[in-house]
Design a protein around this nucleic acid. Structure first.
Lengths: 146, 146
DNA sequence: GAAGATTGACCACTCAATCTTT
DNA sequence: AAAGATTGAGTGGTCAATCTTC
């Protein structure tokens, strides 16, 4: 809480970067080794799967994923090209569109999850006790608060 | 430590991504707003500044930074073009080279640090007590261990 | 004018291939 | 053959500009 230099604060930052990098590399490598799409695709497909067949608007996705509009636009292009989602015109607002997951998209997401989950467990759970996991989750939560 | 699905483990992962993303965005934005180079340049310049005027070999830098060889090679290109480091032939091993920070490089690194530090403090210290900071540092440390 | 979304140009990262020296 | 380092081609991210509709 002080404004003076604090060694532990710097260390939190460097450890945060290293830990995220290490876990992410492991997860992406596991997906690639299983011939599955990248993690960014999973995030999109998960959200679309949750809202079901009525789909959602891209600007709604922006908020849950941490992507700017132009970046999401191109990501959706690629996922749509692979046949995992459809883009439909939006009747309420002709500027926008509705994106909805396809059967093929649901299927690939289901195949991704076990690989993803196992990689998360290996990156996180293997290093911590149950109680440490809980503490870490709470502390990281504080960093995210506005 | 279990192999069964654990809600907190997933939450640690998602919070880790969000927290790192939030802090990184803030830091990069602060550097850009001050018309300073990106964070990746700082990491290189800091290592070079530490070893002093004798410089170091690129493959040594690879280990401290989390970059593959080809990625570092291009990063060094850019930093050298800006005049912040010199590439010198290596007499002991003609395959390699020595990279050393320039005066201009030292200067820009010194100008980057206060901006960087303040952004870290705003991203981390503002959200945590001293004791929480210490705990978080230790817990994140466990994730990095091999 | 503002919001939803896309695009062209540019920058940075990745992979595999390459070159030189050991 | 292995290690240090670079490069060409392809991919993804970023910025500013643009288009359409509200």
């Amino acid at each position: 809480m002080t404004t003076e230099p604090n060694k532990n604060v710097i260390e939190v930052w460097t450890h945060l970067v290293s830990a995220q990098h290490k876990a992410l590399s492991h997860i992406e490598a596991a997906l690639k080794a299983a011939n599955l799409p990248a993690l960014s695709w999973y995030d999109v497909l998960l959200e679309l799967d949750r809202v079901g067949k009525d789909g959602m608007r891209p600007y709604e996705l922006e908020q849950s994923l941490l992507l700017p509009q132009y970046s999401l636009s191109r990501l959706l292009d690629r996922i749509a090209s692979a046949g995992y989602l459809n883009r439909l015109p939006c009747k309420q607002d002709a500027r926008g569109q509705i994106i909805a997951i396809t059967c093929k998209g649901k299927e690939i997401r289901q195949r991704m999850w076990p690989v993803y989950e196992q990689a998360i467990n290996q990156s996180i759970a293997k290093h911590l006790t149950t109680s440490e996991t809980e503490s870490l989750s709470k502390l990281l939560g504080k960093l995210i608060e506005p």
